[in-house]
């Protein structure tokens, strides 16, 4: 047997440190979470747009958990988003703006619950089959939610949307204001908490096993991993995240409509994640910002035709850039600052 290399960690303690180092907070992560809240002061007139970006980012994060880490291709996350939106909107409406029924956090909990149950039930359909089948089943399910929202007029208000959504003040103190200040802080706080959960998941044994399934499901099974249970779990969690994002949008815009469920919602969120880079956790958040700002600028130049430029950028991304913005940054970093050891993806 070959002699042990001197440079290699010779004992468990160093190996353990190197493993744990993957979960340490990096300077750029801390910087990110300082910059985002400070936008409250830097761009006080853009808070509504910023809230929307945070919510889109959360939706994209939910796809990242499912696609980026577990490798489940989905076009149906908009369905869970819509379920969450309607759940939260109806809670707020029924409570007529007063606690306890209209309490925003309760609304989010219900949104997560409804979307989570739907996710759990449909996960068994998604387990089977190839990427193609998964794409079509998830798309079909989202379309069914969309169609239901359109047709169940007595509950959802049909295509006109649900009016009279009045969430109670957040924690009984902060009422949603016209400038979107409370909305921004509220959305940011929820996003941050859920981000911490997502981050912990991806750095845990559970998260590692998801990446293993994505990498080689056959091998994952032969080491005794309950592959299907893990996939059901992450798909359900992803649905809950999407449901919360939908609930947030309904509460902060005080509105819910079938538009929140439509195909382009799922497609946009997927594009956002691809823009930012899947499998990094931050890809969805950064992608959401770039996407919405780009949408704003391009819409100003060519109103209503900005889809063309979006399509073009996406085309370039698929053809020439692997891994989105963060993938590009990582490749650039690796070129100029080659990593000391040839480490695997975090």
């Amino acid at each position: 047997m070959s002699a042990v290399d001197v440079k290699a960690p010779a004992n468990g303690a160093t190996a353990r440190l190197s493993l744990l180092a993957g979960a340490r907070w990096r300077w750029y992560e801390i910087a990110f979470w300082i910059v985002v809240p400070s936008l409250y002061f830097l761009a006080p007139t853009k808070l509504t747009l910023l809230s929307e970006i945070l919510i889109l980012g959360l939706l994209a994060l939910s796809i990242d958990l499912v696609l980026g880490f577990a490798g489940i291709v989905t076009l149906g996350q908009g369905g869970f988003f819509g379920l969450g939106a309607y759940a939260a909107a109806l809670m707020a409406k029924w409570g007529a703006g007063t606690a306890p029924l209209s309490d925003p956090l309760l609304g989010l909990a219900v949104a997560a619950g409804v979307a989570g149950i739907a996710g759990f039930l449909t996960s068994f359909l998604v387990l089977r089959g190839s990427d193609l089948t998964r794409l079509m089943v998830t798309l079909g399910l989202a379309l069914i939610v969309d169609e239901t929202a359109n047709k169940m007029k007595w509950l959802t208000g049909g295509s006109d949307g649900l009016q009279g959504v009045l969430p109670a003040p957040v924690l009984g103190v902060w009422d949603f204001d016209l400038y979107g200040r409370v909305a921004f802080c509220y959305a940011l706080a929820v996003l941050f908490v859920l981000f911490l959960v997502a981050r912990q998941i991806t750095k845990s044994p559970f998260g590692l096993s998801l990446q293993a399934i994505k990498g080689n499901p056959l091998r994952a099974r032969t080491i005794g991993m309950p592959v299907n249970a893990r996939l059901v779990a992450i798909y359900t969690i992803g649905a809950m995240f999407a449901g919360v994002a939908g609930g947030l949008l309904a509460q902060t815009t005080q509105f819910a409509s079938p538009d929140m469920v439509a195909f382009h919602r799922s497609a946009d969120a997927l594009l956002i994640l691809i823009f930012g880079g899947a499998g990094y956790l931050y890809g969805g958040l950064i992608g959401a910002g770039v996407f919405r700002v780009m949408q704003d600028i391009l819409s100003n130049i060519t109103p209503q035709y900005w889809q063309f430029w979006l399509g073009l950028v996406l085309l370039m991304l698929v053809l020439f850039v692997r891994g989105g913005i963060l993938g590009l940054l990582r490749a650039t970093r690796d070129r100029f600052f080659p990593p000391s050891s040839d480490k695997a993806a975090p």
Binding site: L20, A23, Q200, P205, R230, A233
Partner: peptide
């Protein structure tokens, strides 16, 4: 980790 049935723990950090 899988052998020891600890693979679904999400609250622990890997390692």
């Amino acid at each position: 980790t899988e052998r020891e049935n600890a693979g679904s723990q999400w609250w622990r950090t890997s390692g």
